[in-house]
Design a protein around this nucleic acid. Structure first.
Lengths: 224, 224
DNA sequence: TAGATTGTTAATCGATTAACAATC
DNA sequence: TAGATTGTTAATCGATTAACAATC
């Protein structure tokens, strides 16, 4: 596969394409043009063709794209067929919600084990995934190939646990703690789920809209 | 407050600034220059000054920025002092994790009520937030001013519930379902937490790095 | 005052959009 | 074949970076 340097913006759009293509498949749509796909996603056809062209030629002139084939190309580009192995650190609310609800295998990941310090959880299993003591973490990572760690520990544990993961050769973290892990110097890959950042940007847009409406109302009030 | 059109990129950086400023405060830092702030966040000083200048003049030549004052400006820009009112739809794993773990008030939101269809939950309270039946939703929204709905229902319910929210005047959704709600035509504000999109972009970067390492190993192997 | 650092204007860079020849 | 739509090159647009006068 071509691996030219692709901008982060493009990468972030790929999962949306994937989701839309799955939806089209479910609805029995087997081909789609960049024009129609753009309409449905709020993107220009040009952008869609540019995005795909980073990775190869997946379409056909005069026809468009085969939904199933394109889906499978994108899945492969995203690494979904590589069966990455993951561990979960922290079986609190978020950790449990992930174990319970989130289908790792659907996205190409295998959740090997979870780890926690709570004695009531250690030794149990949840949806087929064993929960081990944090004491066993280093040994487990030495014996198993692990591509990624899901970090769902309390705030205060975020940095020490990250250092421990780094020391044990982990170089990718899916970070659910609201702590900035991204070290400019390190070669750790960090992907953040920052609930509060997300909520605050929504908050900004709500506030902006309220202000605009208030301003409009004031203008119209004056006109009366 | 100036409300010029500010790019989404800028808005998305504001919560990071806020987080960093809180951290600096905790460490007793009371002033910071755009240069130092940039170092800590991996941004250029220019960008930071440009970002802030969208909203006013918060610094002082020769001195830099007062951490507490800047923090409070950004909080206000983000609408954190507006006490927006929210409801939660769906008290499954994610909904419960949010009720349990996520401090809405810390970010300027008040969670008025949750709603679910599970009879075992209806009528109970969780951390002071009452859980009501979905049957009561329309009435509740008619009687209470609600700025935003947190959508944490199963996939299949996402679209119908969204339509019901729209019909009841809700115009902002914090979406935890893995469903594309963003209607190009609608004036609904949607902010998505797409776990799988996030994981897949991480997956891409892991795959890319693996490929690069394999390529390097192959090159070095050949040289031997 | 001299040094530091802002806010802002200008320059650069990169991403998106438009256009079109190629071709199914 | 004619019509449709791609992949790609060129043009435009917007965001980031650099530079610097203003000023604390």
């Amino acid at each position: 596969m071509k691996r030219v340097k692709v901008s982060n913006n493009v990468i972030r759009r790929l999962p949306r394409y994937l989701r839309k293509l799955d939806e089209l498949s479910e609805h029995g749509v087997s081909r789609i043009s960049s024009f129609d796909l753009g309409q449905q996603l709020g993107l220009t056809p040009s952008q869609i063709r540019q995005d795909f062209s980073c990775f190869g030629e997946f379409g056909q002139q005069g026809y468009g794209y085969n939904v199933a084939a394109l889906r499978s190309h994108i899945a492969s580009i995203l690494g979904m067929d590589r069966d990455f192995q993951a561990v979960l650190i922290g079986v609190g609310n978020i950790g449990r919600a992930l174990m319970d609800n989130f289908c790792f295998s659907e996205w190409g990941f295998r959740l090997l084990s979870a780890f926690d310090i709570n004695p009531a959880l250690i030794g149990t299993e949840f949806k087929g995934v064993p929960i081990r003591s944090m004491d066993e973490l280093d040994g487990f990572l030495a014996e198993n190939h692990v591509d990624m760690a899901v970090l769902a520990v309390p705030k205060d544990a975020a940095i020490p646990v990250t250092e421990r993961l780094t020391a044990n050769g982990i170089s990718a973290i899916w970070n659910f703690t609201n702590v900035e892990l991204t070290e400019p110097s390190s070669d750790m890959l960090v992907e953040n789920i920052h609930f509060s950042d997300s909520l605050l940007s929504l908050s900004y847009y709500i506030a902006e809209r309220n202000d605009e409406e208030a301003a409009r109302a004031a203008r119209e009030g004056r006109k009366l």
